[in-house]
Every structure is written in C-alpha cells, then in structure tokens.
C-alpha cells in the first residue's frame, strides 16, 4: 500500500459518481458515473455499470455503459462490454465480447453528446436505478445532431459525396468505378453517409 493507488476492492461497491485525476483500479463494483483523466482498469470479476469518461480504459471484467476514452480502449480476452464507445484507439483481444457502436473519430462530439445526456438524467440519488444501456442508434444520431445541428442537411447531394476517400483514403492503384448513385447509395448504410458528410 506504499503507492496508495486508488483501488476499489473486490468486496466494495460504490453507487454514485467517481471523479479523479489518477489511475483507478476496480476489482469490485461501481454503478453510476466515472470521470477520470488517467487510466481506468476494470479487473476480471469486477463490474462497472456506469457512463465512463476516461483517458485510458483497460477492461478484463464487465462494463455496461457509454464509454468515452480520450486516449485508448483495450478490451482484454475476458472483457464483457456493452455500450457505445468513442476512442481514437481501440484494441480487442481474441475472446473479448463487445456489443455497441464504435466511433474512433470525433471524441469531443461524443463527449459532448454523453455529457448532455447526463445532464438530462436526474442527479444520482441514494439508490441509482439500474439503467438499461441506451439505444445505440439514438446515441449516434444524437452525437451527429450535436456536432452538426446548424449545418444544413442535403439528402440529394449525400449520395454523390459517399466516397471512401474522406475518412479512409482509397489506394491509388486499383481502378475505381464511376459511382452509380443508386447502387452504391443502397449499399452504404445510412449512418455511413452521415459520417462521411460530417467530415
């Protein structure tokens, strides 16, 4: 106990909000909200049911909630995670189980969307109700609305702007087909159009 790192022991449970500017290791359980500038490690056997806004996240246990990590997310082989995730870096080991939407782009927008949602929610009371994970599509839609609320949406122009070059540069060598609006438009999911248009 010399270095006094913050550890939530395996027989400890916290309901509420945890904030801090140091590493936090969870071996027990946290329900609510965690805001951390450094690394949050959710150990094997630990349970975190909370919205997370952290620097780095390492998961070996179970996490349910919206995840925003400004640096990186690592889902180790024993990780069980459900919830939307925004982080510039994501690694997933074989065996890790995850369900949710991944956004490796606009972390600021994701954080803004997450915090605006948190404001809408009533303050954490003595017994925070166990909250089902938010619907995924709605969350993304919100994030997009949050960033582009004022921008005019041009559905007609959308299809022609669907090119992979915006976020993922296409290799120069293979010949590209002329874009047929109908075919490619139908194939590209609606969210992808939005995403590219956003950039």
């Amino acid at each position: 106990m010399a270095d006094k790192e913050t550890v939530i022991g395996s027989d400890t449970r916290i309901s509420g909000e945890v904030r801090g500017e140091e590493d936090l290791v969870v071996r027990g359980r946290i329900d609510g909200k965690i805001q951390l500038t450094q690394t949050l490690t959710v150990e094997k056997g630990a349970t975190v049911q909370a919205d997370l806004d952290v620097g780095h996240l390492v998961v070996l246990g179970a996490v349910v909630g919206t995840i925003v990590a400004s640096e990186s997310v690592k889902l180790m082989s024993t990780a069980r995670v459900v919830g939307d995730l925004a982080s510039p870096r994501l690694t997933m080991e074989a065996g890790a189980a995850y369900r949710g939407r991944v956004d490796m782009g606009d972390i600021a927008a994701a954080r803004a969307a997450a915090s605006s949602r948190a404001v809408q929610r009533p303050a954490v009371s003595e017994k925070p109700a166990i909250r089902p994970a938010p619907p995924r599509m709605a969350t993304l839609a919100k994030a997009i609305v949050a960033t582009k609320a004022s921008a005019p949406v041009a559905p007609a122009a959308a299809r022609s702007t669907v090119t992979p070059s915006a976020s993922v540069p296409a290799p120069a060598s293979p010949p590209a087909f002329p874009r047929v609006a109908g075919a490619m438009g139908a194939m590209t999911p609606a969210w992808a159009k939005k995403k590219i248009r956003r950039r």
Partner: peptide
C-alpha cells in the same frame, strides 16, 4: 481504424 457497430454475444454477469 473502425467505425460502425459490433455485434457479438455478450454474456454479462
């Protein structure tokens, strides 16, 4: 780099 959704069976505690 990945953008989109991931669908897996997640067995939560």
């Amino acid at each position: 780099k990945f953008s989109g959704t991931i669908e897996m069976e997640v067995e939560l505690p």
